[in-house]
Design a protein around this nucleic acid. Structure first.
Lengths: 104, 104
DNA sequence: TTTATTAAGTTACTTTTCGTAACCTAGTGT
DNA sequence: ACACTAGGTTACGAAAAGTAACTTAATAAA
């Protein structure tokens, strides 16, 4: 791939949130910690991609995976501080969408 | 694909800016109208994808394509009002990146 | 004691999207 | 006539996404 003269941090941040589904997963977690199946049923993506994205977001320190060793085991995903800091961006997208996109 | 219970406008807005390269193209145009080759040389993507994205963004009303019939013809891309309204989101990504990503 | 169910994924396979490089078209300059 | 530049487009292989079926582990039901 070509190289660019962009700030590498900005470029990385942009790639991170513009990875398909990443923004919507963060949005979903803004309403609180949630289990895999809850996220899956609230977003139009499949378990495979959700699983991949959650791993990537965990890797980036945006999402935390909490395991509760109950029976059956319960696993909840939540936003880290770094993830919560994305809220203004997500809210920005909400506002832009309601201001500029057709109400259907 | 599965359906979701998200606000369709928000979902569409999110898909729009999280389309690969779209955010960086808008960012690039925030510094003023620019020609195809200028955008191409400032971002790490190829002409093929840039061409596709610009068409999509034009379709969405985010980008305008201005043709100046000089010789040789000059074509400049610029943000519409709708596109300019994305600025706070892009700035948000800049700020988040500088606050939360490793400097290097 | 089988059988079923649920959460949280994973695998196998198909379809889209991306990335690279070569090519095209018009007009200019040499 | 020949090469050069802008603004793309085409062909083709590689990577990512989508779909559906399967796995594992534990509890519940028959």
């Amino acid at each position: 791939m070509k190289e660019s003269n962009l700030c590498p941090r900005f470029e990385k941040g942009m790639q991170l949130i513009s990875k398909r589904w990443a923004g919507l997963i963060v949005y979903q977690l803004l309403s609180g910690p949630q289990r895999f199946c809850t996220i899956e049923s609230n977003l139009p993506l499949s378990g495979k991609i959700l699983s991949e994205r959650l791993k990537e977001l965990e890797q980036e320190g945006v999402v935390r995976r909490n395991v509760y060793p109950e029976t059956p085991v319960r696993i909840e995903y939540s936003l880290t501080e770094k993830g919560l800091a994305l809220e203004p961006i997500i809210r920005g997208v909400e506002q832009w969408s309601s201001a500029w996109l057709q109400p259907e």
